[in-house]
Amino acid sequence: MTKADKIEAALRAAFTPQVLDVVNESHMHAGHAGDDGTGETHYAVRIQSAAFDGMSRIARHRAVHAAIGKDLMVQIHALSLDISA
């Protein structure tokens, strides 16, 4: 299971999103800071779920971070989030 699969599974379970795209952008950062050679360091997530309704921007991001979990969060260098309700 790739890290992208793990992120996707965690978010699907936590938010039952209407829209969910997890894109591994690591190749775009090859050789840059944070690239550890695994090709699994930089991710962009687009997620839409009614679960985010009424939450502030910071609260939405924190909820996503929490759903992904600390163990996985510390293994990735960058996570770009586009979150909507």
């Binding site: 921007r57 910071i58 991001h61 770009s80 989030l81 586009d82």
Partner: peptide
């Protein structure tokens, strides 16, 4: 007060 990181500042 904490405002946010890169994505939030960009959006705001």
């Amino acid at each position: 007060e904490f405002v946010g990181g890169c994505d939030i500042i960009t959006e705001m």
